[in-house]
Structure formats: structure tokens, C-alpha cells
Simulated scan of single mutants.
Amino acid sequence: MTEADPDRIDDALIALRRILRATELHERDLAQAVGLTPAKLRVLQLLALKEREGATPTALAYQMGVSQATVTALVDQLVKRGFAARHRSAADRRQTDVVITAEGASALATAPNALQQQFVDGFAAMADWEQAMMIATLERVAAMLNAQWIDAAPVLATGDIRVGRPRT
């Protein structure tokens, strides 16, 4: 194994810091614009796709790749703000569906473009081999940081997306 070029190490660390800083800046812009975290915005986006019928917390948790407890906490906060509402499922009265409200749709419409959407658009424009290479590289970076085992949702945010835990 050869010794790494110090300039390349610095370049890699600078690129990582830029990615982290972009997520921090996006979170701040989102909070200032509509008072939402990226995770809450994602819940609203998923609910907007379902419009009238809504979605169960279980379905939201599965789609976001987080626990049902995390989704419940996010939904609790959205309901408290008037951005979402809960109601009994018409198909199964034992289940509760979550729907987006007019206030939630308005907040969603005025929210800045989600950072992950910018990534999705750029990633989709890549050739298949570039996408595969990007995934392999990012997975390698995660492994280098001992982060390959961390449970993570496809939401670009800093800190823990679980509600109620202070950010550092």
C-alpha cells in the first residue's frame, strides 16, 4: 500500500465538508422558510402523493426507511402545527390514516427545493456505470467512517432525524 498524497487527503476532506455544509445550509433555509425539518418535509411530500386517502404511519415508516416510532413523532408534530391530520381508515376502522391538510400543502408549496431532489436529479442524469461507481464510492466512504451500520433514511439532513433528540 502506498502513502496517500496529503493534497488528495485535503481535497477529499474538503469535499466531505462541503457535502455536510450543504445539508446544514439547506436545513437552515428550510427551517426559516416553513419551519420544517427535512424529515417532516419528506412526510408531507409522501402525504401529498396520497392526497385524500392518506397513508398509515406504518407505510410512511417503511417508505422513509425509519421506525414507526420516528414517524409517529414526526406526524405528532405535523398534526400539532396543523400540517397533517389523523382519521380512521375507511377500509379498516382499526387503522389510522394520516392526511395532509391545506396548511400542510401550502407549507409544502412554499418550501425550498429539497436538497435530496437536487441529488436525485443529478444522479438520474448519470450513466448507469457512473451511478454504480458513485454508490460504490459512497458506500466505501461510509465504511471508512465506520458508518456502514448506521440506520439511515434517504433524507439529506444533519443530525438524527428522530424527533426530540437534540442536534449536536
Rank of each mutant, 00 (worst) to 15 (best):
64 M>Q: 11
50 K>N: 09
136 A>K: 14
108 L>N: 07
104 G>L: 00
155 V>Q: 09
79 V>A: 11
165 R>Y: 08
36 L>M: 06
147 A>Q: 06
145 L>W: 02
55 A>V: 09
97 D>P: 00
163 V>T: 15
96 T>R: 13
60 L>Y: 07
125 A>Y: 01
62 Y>T: 13
144 M>R: 04
106 S>E: 12
2 T>P: 08
53 E>A: 13
43 V>K: 01
20 L>H: 12
160 D>F: 12
84 A>H: 02
54 G>S: 09
37 T>A: 10
90 A>F: 10
57 P>W: 01
138 L>C: 07
121 D>V: 15
142 A>P: 01
69 A>E: 14
9 I>K: 03
164 G>E: 06
68 Q>M: 14
59 A>I: 06
31 A>S: 15
63 Q>H: 04
135 I>M: 11
104 G>F: 00
115 L>R: 12
136 A>M: 09
7 D>N: 11
154 P>F: 03
19 I>V: 14
14 I>M: 12
163 V>N: 11
109 A>E: 08
96 T>A: 13
52 R>L: 05
72 T>K: 10
28 R>M: 12
63 Q>K: 10
65 G>F: 05
132 A>M: 10
33 A>R: 08
105 A>C: 02
95 Q>L: 14
22 A>Q: 11
5 D>P: 02
106 S>C: 05
40 K>M: 10
57 P>A: 12
77 Q>S: 09
153 A>F: 05
71 V>L: 13
107 A>E: 06
87 H>T: 12
79 V>W: 09
42 R>L: 07
121 D>G: 03
147 A>K: 01
53 E>Q: 11
92 D>Q: 03
143 A>H: 08
7 D>R: 13
140 R>A: 09
123 F>V: 06
103 E>Q: 10
124 A>W: 01
